[in-house]
Design a protein around this nucleic acid. Sequence first.
RNA 1: GCCGGUGUGGCGAAAUGGCAGACGCACGGGACUUAAAAUCCCGGGACCAUAAAAAGUCGUGCGGGUUCGAGUCCCGCCACCGGCACCA
Length: 987
Amino acid sequence: MSSRRQYPFDLIEPKWQQRWEAQQLFRAWNPGDAIPAAHPFAQRHGLSGPTPADKLPPKYYILDMFPYPSGAGLHVGHPEGYTATDILARYRRTRGYNVLHPMGWDAFGLPAEQYAIKTGQHPRATTEANIANFKRQIQSLGFSYDWSREVDTTDPGYFRWTQWIFVQLYGAWFNPRTNKAEPISTLVYPEGLTSAHERRSYCDSKRMAYVSEAPVNWCPELGTVLANEEVIDGKSEVGGFPVVRRPMRQWMLRITAYAERLLNDLDGLDWTHSLKEMQRNWIGRSDGAEVRFALVSTKGSEPAPVITVFTTRPDTLFGATYMVLSPEHRLVDSITTPQQREAVDAYKNFAATKSDLERTELAREKSGVFTGAFAINPVDQKRIPVWIADYVLATYGTGAIMAVPGHDTRDLEFATKFNLPIVQVVRPPDPKADWRGFVEAGTATNSRNAEISLDDLPTADAREKIIAWLESKALGRRTINYKLRDWLFSRQRYWGEPFPIVWRSGQHEALPDSDLPLQPPDLTDFKPTSAGDPPLARAQEWTALSDGALRETNTMPQWAGSCWYYLRYLDARNPAAFCGREAEKYWMGAGGAPLNVSGAPAKPGVDLYVGGTEHAVLHLLYSRFWHKVLFDLGHVSTSEPFFKLVNQGLILGELEFTLFSAESGRHVTANHVKNISEEASADGVRLVGVHQASGEKCIGRRVDEEEIEKTGDGFVLKSSKAIRVDARSFKMSKSRGNVISPDVILAQYGADAFRLYEMFMGPLEMVKPWSTKGVDGVYRFLGRVWRLFIDDQSETEFEQAATTASAGDAALLDRIRLKPDVQEASASRAQLKTLHACIKNVTEDLDGLRFNTAISELMVFVNEAMTWPVKPAAILREFLILLQPFAPHIAEELWSKLTASTGQPAPALAYAPWPVLDPALLVEDFMEMPVQVNGKLRDVIRVAATATSQEIEAAALASEKVKADLAGKTIRKMIVVPKKIVNIAAG
RNA sequence: GCCGGUGUGGCGAAAUGGCAGACGCACGGGACUUAAAAUCCCGGGACCAUAAAAAGUCGUGCGGGUUCGAGUCCCGCCACCGGCACCA
């Protein structure tokens, strides 16, 4: 760890942050805004006063996922994404765009409420304090956010519009014919629906926001219900508490109506493959068929009921040897025979009382009972038994399946356990393979009746043929199912948006717009009531209206506010609309005048959205859904909000070495320890595992790097080289004690070094371990930049003055002078080449989001420039423009010194035009070409850049080393790739 | 189990099918210094060889393949990370 300070970042950084703030340097301008003529943006673009959209330069909207302001403050993962976006925002400003780069707070949420329950402190107070701390930390990093657009989801001026959007959802239905949401007034009622009551029920059942009485995920510890997406392995995503199924009256949002569009529109998005796959998996489209199975009638002449199943493998219908209904299926009671009644009731009871957690734990062992009923397989008229089992889910498909144990893993398990028949209807392509449990595509077999034969057809063709047959006989139809469920939108919490809904005589209605925002009541006790009602029910004067109506006491989930915040930024202080039309069109459409400098024109939507993978399904799916509804209803002009999205990789803690010991105390080599996992212990968290051979439990202990050395492909103890240690980095967590606070790094290295290190670690989207030592490298680089410009004599004087003067006096910086090597001298060809190589590489790397290599190119330039006896000022100025996006504070300080020395007025660095590459300067007179023989390097020859292939060949063959290698061989082939390589194939 | 991603020096990493290891960390040597820190310069994949070098051989998780040439493309494995998980 370097102890001597490289340069006075502690004075420079606050100085420039204050100036940027005072000048409103990073204000983004909306169409119609009066831009002050003195503002650097106005000067750069020759604007002043009110400016219409078509006179503004093209927009560039670069968005961070706004944080939840937790009590713990920022961790190093947040600024990773923020730094990347800030670099690009600054870069785009220098490229001439009108850049929108905002920040805000996703501030509703459970922790503040739980803290309130514990301490009695109002969540508002906690939230404000946390926001203040987050804002201080974020601002200390010198990000170029337009703070005039800051949003806070808990601000009534914000959630007024969250509530307004809910009212839009409430007032809309999904028209399957137009495949879009429409005002509820366009709803078409079925014929014969005449009574007002029936019409009302029908209408309510079609709304995009509707009330459901379905079983929900109830978390007793949290005292609230959770969305499916918030339940992981039967436990709450927040806190890891058990979740049970329980029927409750809840608000739901009809996201399933958009399943197809949410799926299809992924194709047009510039997102990573894996992120799209996650969304596709979550939506979970399955193509298949519904098939109708008639039951064998037990009651004489009464028409037998029909059970409809969903299957993705209708081609295996001949192999269906039994059926299974979910225990909750509506026909279970009516089909159960008296002999089986007791067993069925017992099983239903058993299934109903199981929590999701128990269900997951028991998932491996199949269970179920026979109902006593039989159905007829429509293809061969065979009687097959009907069972119930909890491996069939009530909420997917039709809640019933045809079981094909020959070709479905779960059905096979079940059939084996209960001795049900297993028949083959698919031949695997490999004749030696076992057909039992073969679930992939093969060839149909044993699949014929008097009317149809699938035999010898490939699976795909068999499927088509049987579907057509089923449809022709009205025994089934082609259909599609989705895993996606409607979005459970109610929470029994205090710290969230109240629903703009009142209940009158048991019927709900939306509040008029004039009643928004609906503020939550002030409470002192934030727990649910003793009757189990949500905390809002405690405020009786708030819930009970004078006319006898009652307010809805649920609140919206945390995702509500984050579903649309990117739209509020566009027009954050608009009191009359969630977002003005002009602003929306400019920023989300392809707004602005064409760019007259080089650079791409504006694209629709958010140009770049950066954030963590933890939001891959929840936030991003919900946001897309709301956006599409707003689009359908004519409130926004694009069908998707985020056209390009990048996930930053997690930053892990420092590398740790773990030595394992068996319970007997002897050390165990790490590669013999299996099932390594984390376990809580007295002093935090430790690794434990099981010894491969003996089965003993092995306990990990952290060991110091000093005790370790590298051998072969692993690390071993120095003291005992047969003992391997485990080496890995862990996710930062409080319990592990490996959290790095940005504040500590900032105090020691400054914001510029911190920003640089976060980007230099590796590619943005990769998982990377933190290394504080690594910060030294970029910090030293900034020191070299400083010494490239600064006279050390004057800096010594400054240091002396700084120790005696009152600390933190930025005026002292004026004593620091440029070094005499920096001159208004003309640059040599070699110097220009160094600069332009840097321009080329940095520009290309920024366009490709390769920040790590962009920084290394800046280092290459500085390493070279340090050797120049005279440093031409013009070259250094261009270099500072390249440096500014990455390390803005030091760049501004040096820019001000460099431009002051000319006596000329200089443009503001943040808006100075990005250097233009002159490719002619990179052209070489000579080139070095490697010469290979049979792919092995033998020599490097130097030839004129203009040399022909023949000349290069001749030069290669003239090489002594090549000649020596070719001795005794005959040349079979010669490959000359101009400017690249020569390869001689010889034998 | 299914889907996706990633495997390159002691470490973080770089390389439109064309000289593997740019740039940095850590390390070793040197200069400066009374000394240290800081700074500046030099070194560096492994093996073999040697007083030192040159030359040579091997080398991008493993095994095959395509190609004049493969870290990069194709086929088959393995490991790690992430997501989903009785979704019929």
